[in-house]
C-alpha cells in the first residue's frame, strides 16, 4: 500500500516534470470545460442568487429550498438527463453535440449553477441586511441594489465560484456519460482517472488525482491571495 502511494506520487511527479504532452492536453481540456461551465453557471447563478436575496415574492422560500437541495445533485443524474436531451433521439438531438466538450460544459454548468445560486444567495442576503436601508435611502431600486450587492460582495463571490469550479473539475459521472471519454476529444482528468483505475493502473490513476488536486489547490490559493489583498485594500 505504502509502496503504491509512493509510486503514485512518483508517477505524478514524472508526468509533470516531463510535461507529458498527452497529460497537458487532458489538463487543458479539463480546465477549459470546467472553467467555461463555471462562467456559464455564474452568469445564471449569481443574478439568480441576487434576485432571491433582495426580492420578496410568493414561492421564494420554495425556490431557496429547491436550490439548496439541488446543490447535492448527483452528477450521474445530471449526466443522464443531459444525455437524454442531447441524444439524437432526444429533443435537442439535432444539435449534434453529444460526445463533444460542449455537452460536457452543459452538464457541468447544470451541476454548478445551483451551487453558485444557493451560496451566493446566502452571502448576498447577509449583505442586503447590512445595505438595505442605506441603498433605499439613496433611492436604489431592487435591480440596482442587486447589482450593487453583487459588486460589493465580489470577493466572497469569487470563493463561491471557485467552489463551483472545484465541484465541476472533480466530477466524473456527468462528463463520462455525455462526453463518452473519447481519447483526444472528450477525455478529461477525471475520466482518465476512471479509465486508468479500470485498467488496474492504480498508481497512474492516483498520480493523475494528485495532479488534479494540485491544480485545484493552486487555483484556490491564488484566489485566496487575491481575496486577502483585496480585503486589505477595500475593507
Amino acid at each position: 500500500m505504502m509502496n503504491d502511494l509512493g509510486r503514485a506520487f512518483a508517477e505524478a511527479f514524472g508526468l509533470v516534470a516531463r510535461l507529458d504532452p498527452q497529460l497537458l492536453d487532458i489538463v487543458a481540456l479539463s480546465l477549459k470545460v470546467s472553467l467555461t461551465a463555471v462562467v456559464l453557471a455564474a452568469l445564471v447563478g449569481l443574478p439568480l442568487g441576487a434576485v432571491l436575496a433582495v426580492e420578496r415574492f410568493r414561492g421564494r422560500q420554495a425556490v431557496v429550498v429547491l436550490l439548496n437541495a439541488l446543490m447535492g445533485l448527483p452528477p450521474v443524474v445530471v449526466g443522464l438527463l443531459v444525455y437524454l436531451l442531447l441524444s439524437r433521439a432526444g429533443p435537442l438531438g439535432s444539435l449534434g453535440i453529444l460526445f463533444t466538450p460542449a455537452a460536457m460544459i452543459v452538464a457541468q454548468a447544470i451541476l454548478v449553477t445551483p451551487i453558485v445560486a444557493a451560496l451566493s444567495r446566502q452571502v448576498l442576503e447577509d449583505a442586503w441586511r447590512e445595505y438595505e436601508e442605506q441603498l433605499r435611502s439613496l433611492g436604489a431600486r431592487r435591480m440596482t441594489a442587486a447589482i450593487t450587492l453583487l459588486w460589493d460582495t465580489r470577493f466572497s463571490l469569487v470563493t463561491i465560484v471557485l467552489a463551483g469550479f472545484g465541484r465541476a473539475a472533480a466530477e466524473v459521472g456527468a462528463v463520462m456519460i455525455v462526453g463518452g471519454n473519447i481519447d483526444g476529444v472528450t477525455r478529461v482528468m477525471t475520466t482518465t482517472i476512471a479509465l486508468e483505475t479500470s485498467k488496474g493502473d492504480l498508481p497512474l490513476a492516483l498520480g493523475l488525482g494528485v495532479i488534479l488536486v494540485g491544480l485545484v489547490i493552486m487555483l484556490n490559493a491564488a484566489a485566496s491571495l487575491i481575496r486577502e489583498a483585496a480585503l486589505r485594500r477595500y475593507g
Binding site: 477549459k32 463533444t100 466538450p101 460542449a102 459588486w151
Partner: peptide
Amino acid sequence: MELRRSLLCAAVILSTAATAPD
C-alpha cells in the same frame, strides 16, 4: 461599468472555449 467588464470577460472566455474544441 463593472458589470460590463465582467460580461466582456465572460464573452471572451466563452468564445475561446467555443471555438477551440473543433
